[in-house]
Amino acid sequence: MFRLLALCLLLAAPGTLSAQEETAAPAGPIYYTMTPDIITNYQNSGQNLGYVRVAVELMLERPEQLTVVEENMPLLRDALNDLLAEKSRQEIRSLPARAGLADEGRERLNELLLQETGQTPVRRLLFTTFLYQ
């Protein structure tokens, strides 16, 4: 009878973790939307300039790195603006080059953040909108 009562109490008790166990559990990545969209010009052909507008999402390693990204947002936006402005028409319009552009952007942002904060929080850079003219 005692065993049955103990089993019922064990099953009826809510599953609780101590505060220490909850914080020790690894948190998954977090996404940060850079707002507003980045809008810049790129070299089209000869003297003409092209126009590109991108919406950027950053996948961060851990939620606590969100403050690092937010505190350095002007630096990060400027770096992506410069990266896009450096590209040619072919690089902007090519789908394979666009994937490489996202990787290059991630590397550039992590380099800047490493210099400024000693951290490299950006796991991926995603273009959720990519418009050009």
Rank of each mutant, 00 (worst) to 15 (best):
D37H: 09
T35Q: 14
L5H: 00
Q119T: 07
Q43F: 09
G100S: 12
L9G: 10
L95M: 09
T40L: 07
P121T: 10
V69R: 05
T33E: 05
A102F: 05
A12T: 05
L60P: 05
G28M: 01
T33Q: 11
N41A: 11
L49C: 03
L84I: 05
L17F: 10
T129A: 15
L58H: 06
P121Y: 06
N41S: 15
E21P: 00
G15W: 11
A27P: 01
A55S: 15
R77N: 05
T67M: 07
V56N: 03
R62H: 12
E21N: 00
Y31Q: 08
N72G: 05
L58I: 04
Q47M: 08
E64T: 08
L101T: 13
R89T: 04
A27F: 01
I30M: 09
L5Y: 00
T128M: 07
E61V: 06
I39H: 13
G28D: 11
L114W: 02
L4C: 01
V68L: 14
Y51H: 13
Q133H: 09
A25E: 09
L9Q: 00
E22I: 10
E86G: 06
Q90T: 12
L17T: 00
V69H: 04
I39N: 07
L83T: 09
L83W: 03
V52M: 10
G50Y: 09
R62M: 02
G46T: 05
D37Y: 10
A24R: 13
Q119R: 10
E61L: 08
E107A: 14
A6E: 01
Q47N: 14
E91F: 02
N81S: 14
Y132R: 04
R108H: 04
T128I: 12
L114H: 04
T67E: 12
G100H: 06
L125P: 08
T128R: 15
Q115M: 06
A102T: 11
D78V: 07
P29K: 03
L125I: 08
L66C: 02
V122E: 04
I30S: 09
G50V: 11
L113S: 05
Q47W: 12
M73T: 12
R93N: 09
D103Y: 06
L101D: 07
E71V: 01
L83A: 11
L126S: 05
E22H: 01
L126T: 11
R93E: 15
A25S: 02
G100N: 13
A24C: 00
Y132L: 06
V68F: 04
R123C: 01
A99N: 12
L125S: 07
L4R: 11
A27C: 01
G118W: 03
L49G: 05
L84P: 06
E57M: 12
P121I: 08
L58F: 07
R53N: 12
